[in-house]
Computed example of a mutant assay.
Amino acid sequence: MEIYFLGTNAGVPTLLRNVTSVALRLLEERRCFWMFDCGEGTQHQVLRSPLRLGKLEKLFITHLHGDHIFGLPGLLSSRAYQGGTAPLAVYGPPGLKSFIELSMSVSQSRIPYKLEVVEHTGGLIFEDDQFKVEAALLEHRIDSYGYRVTEKDRPGSLNAELLRSYGLKPGPQYGVLKSGRDVTLEDGTVIKATEVLSAPKKGRIVTVLGDTRPCGNTVPLAHEADLLIHEATFKHELAKMAHEYYHSTTIQAAEAAKEAGARQLILTHFSSRYGPLDELLPLLDEARTVFPNTLLAEEFRLFPVMTD
């Protein structure tokens, strides 16, 4: 499980940074990736990355401001040309479906794969045997949501040496034991799964927030998350401006991570007033005074989601 940033700027693209888009790579877990937001030019960013649109399984939109959705029509219409024939599910606030349908209709674009658009107003929006995704409303000029992705606990590892001592070789019975069920051998010997299987591996939690100023749902969404991705549009000296524009400062993002008990914080959605990396470093230093385990989002860089 890894995070890959495709766009980290707020409002408009610049020569240094594109507008918002974040990929959650799940290559080992699902052989795919999920995307959060799709600002203008996102498909160009994908072309410059190791990601392939054919592997895009789910796309989550935080809110309907242009810097978060203007790349969506182009990406959806060209996905098939990059091998994207598998179904794609897109989740987001009410209005998302009409935006997509109108864009595709007016441009006479054809989508040759199954596209499911799921509009929501928060709550549990997806769950299967591996993951669940929950959403909650934040505080922005329009409805903006944060997403909490929870990986379910995974089975522990089998003790191969102990299994060999029973004369058991890799095969279907390994799968039975891996699922937590006991196995009875031909001689009547019962191999208990609890004796050959280590403790379950705790699933990871990633929280991706849309644009927001400090609000009540931030901390519950990020509660004990292994990674929190939080906007930090301004330095804290511009806290008044941040509040007026419904955005957050570095200190506010760090305070949210600290209160939530998150393990790591990555700042993103930087104002265009901040140029190259050396102008962003003061934002990082500021956040670290409150939450030391903070990083700056960087486009085309992988961030592993760690459990420790």
Rank of each mutant, 00 (worst) to 15 (best):
E119N: 03
F60K: 04
K114L: 13
G122F: 02
G71V: 06
L267C: 06
L6C: 00
K192I: 05
N159V: 04
K169H: 07
R30E: 15
G156H: 07
L177T: 03
A160T: 14
I61S: 06
S78Y: 01
E255M: 07
R30D: 14
N18Q: 13
D182K: 04
L177P: 03
P276W: 12
G216L: 11
T233E: 13
G41D: 10
S21L: 04
E255D: 08
I111V: 15
V118R: 15
G275C: 06
E224K: 15
K178G: 02
G84K: 03
E29I: 13
H223T: 11
E244V: 07
V22Y: 03
A80L: 04
G171N: 03
L185H: 09
F36S: 04
E195D: 15
L284Q: 11
L6W: 00
V219R: 04
H236L: 02
S78Q: 13
L283H: 03
R17P: 09
G7D: 08
H269A: 14
W34M: 04
L75P: 08
V206H: 10
L24E: 08
F131T: 07
L197A: 03
M104H: 04
T189Q: 12
G71F: 00
L26N: 12
R204K: 15
F36V: 05
A262E: 09
F70W: 09
D226A: 01
I229V: 14
L115S: 01
A242W: 02
G216H: 06
L197G: 04
R79W: 01
Y246C: 15
A253G: 07
G156W: 02
G261T: 11
K258S: 12
V22T: 15
L185Y: 08
G171R: 08
L228M: 13
L283N: 03
S157T: 09
T20M: 06
P214F: 01
L16R: 14
I205A: 05
Y274N: 13
K97Y: 09
L51Y: 08
P87H: 04
F300E: 15
A256C: 11
H243R: 08
R181S: 03
L88C: 11
A262M: 11
A242V: 09
Q264M: 11
L51W: 09
E195Q: 13
T307S: 14
T121G: 13
T268H: 15
I142G: 05
K152R: 08
Q108W: 04
Q173M: 09
Y91W: 09
A225V: 07
P112W: 10
P50Q: 11
P292D: 05
E237Y: 04
R110H: 12
V117G: 02
K240Y: 11
D37L: 02
V22R: 12
V183N: 00
A136D: 15
K192Y: 14
N18E: 12
